[in-house]
Amino acid sequence: MSKRWKCHFDIDKVENVGEKYFECLIYGKLIVIALMTAVFSTVFAVMFREQRRLLSMLKFFKNLREKSEILLTSLHNVRGNAIKLYDAFVDVIGRSLDEKRKRKTTQQVLMEHNIPEIVLQMLA
């Protein structure tokens, strides 16, 4: 997964900057990755439990980044923008679903067993 994060979050693309600025950039990107991974694992577990569908982590990150401006704007005024925030998040989830397959993946087979939700979140 670290190769994907490097590519998706442009961790390897840092211009010639000072040591402290470089550390801030790296730590900032790692914090964003940690937050997005926490959100993804929760959504992943809920989607599988309720719809038996898998989410693609890379699609989820990509779609979440595309909607980030709408999501951040909506968070500033949650009451007034609750519907817009909800719609944007539902769109991110819908666009992040893995394609349906005739044959089940190993991940789907494992997840069909009666596994506690916390373990499902760890599998994501």
Rank of each mutant, 00 (worst) to 15 (best):
A88V: 07
Q107M: 12
R103S: 11
L71D: 06
K29D: 03
L54Y: 00
L75R: 03
I11P: 04
G28Y: 09
N114I: 04
V14E: 08
R79S: 15
L75N: 04
E19A: 10
E69F: 13
C24H: 06
F40C: 01
M122Y: 05
E23C: 13
F60K: 02
D91S: 13
D12S: 14
I70E: 15
M57D: 00
Y86N: 12
K20Q: 09
K29P: 05
H76R: 11
Q107R: 06
M122C: 14
L75D: 09
F89K: 09
L120V: 03
D12T: 09
G28T: 07
E23Q: 10
D87R: 15
E50T: 01
M36P: 04
F9L: 15
D12V: 04
M57L: 11
V90S: 04
E50R: 02
S56G: 14
M47L: 06
I70T: 15
I70C: 06
G80A: 09
S74P: 03
I31K: 07
M122L: 12
L71Y: 08
R103W: 01
K84W: 02
V78P: 03
M1H: 10
L85P: 03
V92L: 06
K29C: 13
V46Y: 04
M111S: 08
Q108K: 01
I83N: 11
V32M: 08
V119P: 02
T42N: 11
M36Q: 14
Q107N: 08
D87G: 01
S96G: 10
Y86M: 05
I26G: 04
F40E: 00
L55Q: 01
